[in-house]
Amino acid sequence: MLLLFLLVLFTQNYFSHGDLIADTCEKTEYPRICISTLRSNPDSKTADVKELARIILKAALGKVNTILNQANDLLKKTKDRLVRQSLNVCISVYDEALDEIPDAIANVGTNNSEANIQASATIVDADTCEESFSNTPFKADNNAVKQLAVVALDIIASLG
């Protein structure tokens, strides 16, 4: 009997928390990327809404690092002056994002307006990188950074 009770208790806790992810993500502009990002992170299973926002921001930070690594690699290989200028723009703005996103993560739940400003700056960074190219090699990753930042903003807004 005790085993049955514990099974029911754990099942209810698992599914009610699973609902937190779905409920939180359905209120965002990009629910699909929100749900897939959170479901792929094992920390989200026990996270509250503040931690869900932090997990989304950490995913954006991962994408920023991917872009930076690719941009630095391309910079070493290309001789084209315009491409080099565009790569340097991306490297510059995403270097800033390496500071902005961790600050946003730290401010979630304690200073949401500051977290909001920092997450918003990340969207501007992605747009700036994207617009520096006529045909960017980072289109998918820039879009992912922007969408993750928008999702983070939506979640932070729900915190009040």
Rank of each mutant, 00 (worst) to 15 (best):
A53P: 03
A22H: 04
A115K: 02
A53C: 06
V8L: 15
N69Q: 13
T24F: 00
N142W: 05
L52M: 08
T128F: 04
I155H: 02
A121M: 13
P102D: 01
V93L: 05
V8K: 13
L4D: 14
R54G: 02
N142H: 09
S92E: 14
L6V: 09
I55R: 07
S132Y: 07
N116L: 08
L87C: 09
C34W: 05
Y14F: 15
D95H: 06
D23G: 12
D125E: 08
Y94W: 13
I35G: 01
N69S: 13
V124R: 06
A106V: 00
K50N: 13
L6K: 06
G62T: 09
D23T: 09
F5W: 11
D125G: 07
D99Y: 02
D73C: 00
D127L: 10
V83A: 11
A121Y: 06
S120A: 07
A149W: 05
V151K: 02
A71T: 10
F5A: 12
T66Y: 11
L153D: 03
D154Y: 04
K79T: 13
D43V: 01
E96I: 10
P102C: 03
A144C: 06
R32I: 13
A97L: 02
V83I: 12
A157I: 02
I21A: 09
V124E: 07
A53S: 10
T28W: 11
K63A: 15
D125N: 15
T11D: 07
N142P: 03
S134H: 05
R32V: 13
P102W: 04
R32H: 13
L3E: 14
E96D: 14
S113A: 06
E29K: 13
N65Y: 14
P137A: 01
